[in-house]
């Protein structure tokens, strides 16, 4: 019974987090939700008795992809900061 409700929680949380991370306007929040999504997906793989996939999902899908997305985001922001100020000054 407990496991069944846990599985339902996992199911809803994974779908919900996936949806939120795709639709969030704030990209930083979207990335964090994606990382949480990956960790819950890893737990789901454990529940499906596939610990191999779970390990890979937690390490690559959540950890490294999360780090890559965060660094890409930081780089994007830096470029925006370099590019935006002159434009806003001109428009004001």
């Amino acid at each position: 019974m407990i496991w069944r409700s846990f599985d339902w929680f996992l199911l809803l949380a994974i779908v919900g987090l996936g949806w939120r991370s795709l639709n969030d306007r704030d990209l930083f929040r979207a990335v964090i939700q994606f990382i949480a999504f990956g960790l819950l997906a890893a737990v789901a793989w454990v529940r499906l008795r596939a610990p191999d996939v779970a390990l890979a999902e937690a390490a690559v899908g959540s950890g490294l992809t999360g780090a890559l997305l965060l660094s890409a985001l930081a780089r994007m922001r830096r470029r925006e900061q370099q590019a935006v100020p002159p434009r806003t000054e001109a428009s004001e």
Partner: peptide, 25 residues
């Protein structure tokens, strides 16, 4: 450990490599 244990339990090159990649990051 993951590399070695991959022969008889969950683990292997990809999981171990992911940890090495994390260490490099």
């Amino acid at each position: 450990h993951l590399l070695w244990i991959g022969a008889f339990a969950p683990g292997g090159a990809f999981q171990g490599g992911a940890l090495l990649g994390g260490a490099l990051v």
